[in-house]
């Protein structure tokens, strides 16, 4: 074989890995990082809600929890998922505990948002210095965590919730809880 012909290998050796790498990057959001909490207990907290009630992590045990970090300025993603969550709250009722956490936002912003896009039937926690968001490893709203009845984090949704993700994850959590219960 002609050794000089080997120089042609240079072309695919440069082009193919580069194109594959860039191709891999499509549709990938660099802020989307896997959660370190999956399979671990959810961080403990004690926070005040929008209407002045105190909620602790301990009292959320016993039911699957959907913890949603959001902000009134996160448009349109948080608006889109708000509709999904309103629907979820209706269909799952008291079987699931939905909790909103306000991310880098003012209570006034949250109230205006609720008035415009539908009052949430679930509590909204105030996290004024962003401590809880840091403990969960949030990189920006919206981000949601599915926690099982024993308080173990099972799934992280980066970006807006969709109906499919909600029914999938909550179905799994309820199925597991139901299985153990019966």
């Amino acid at each position: 074989m002609n050794v000089r012909a080997l120089r042609w290998l240079l072309v695919p050796l440069v082009v193919v890995p580069l194109v594959l790498l860039l191709l891999h990057g499509f549709g990938r959001d660099p802020q989307a990082i896997p959660s370190r909490l999956i399979g671990k207990p959810m961080p403990e907290f004690r926070l005040v809600t929008l209407d002045g009630r105190t909620v602790t992590s301990a009292e959320l045990r016993g039911k699957p929890v959907l913890l949603n970090f959001w902000a009134s300025w996160c448009i349109p993603a948080c608006v889109d998922e708000h509709a999904v969550m309103l629907e979820a709250a209706r269909s799952y009722g008291s079987a699931v505990q939905i909790v909103g956490v306000l991310y880098q936002d003012t209570p006034d912003g949250a109230r205006t948002f609720g008035a415009r896009y539908g009052e949430p039937s679930w509590p909204t926690l105030l996290d004024p210095d962003g401590r809880l968001a840091l403990d969960f490893g949030v990189t920006g709203p919206p981000e949601s965590y599915f926690v099982d009845a024993r308080g173990i984090v099972r799934y992280k949704q980066f970006g807006p919730l969709t109906a499919a993700v909600v029914s999938d994850q909550l179905g799994r959590l309820l199925g597991a809880a139901g299985g153990r219960g019966s």
């Binding site: 440069v14 082009v15 194109v19 499509f26």
Partner: peptide
Amino acid sequence: GPWFLAAIAVALTGSLGLLVWRLP
């Protein structure tokens, strides 16, 4: 994005190929 990726692939393959061809 895909258009630019294709352009990069074409430009790189074409020009590198040309360079290798003329190397001798």
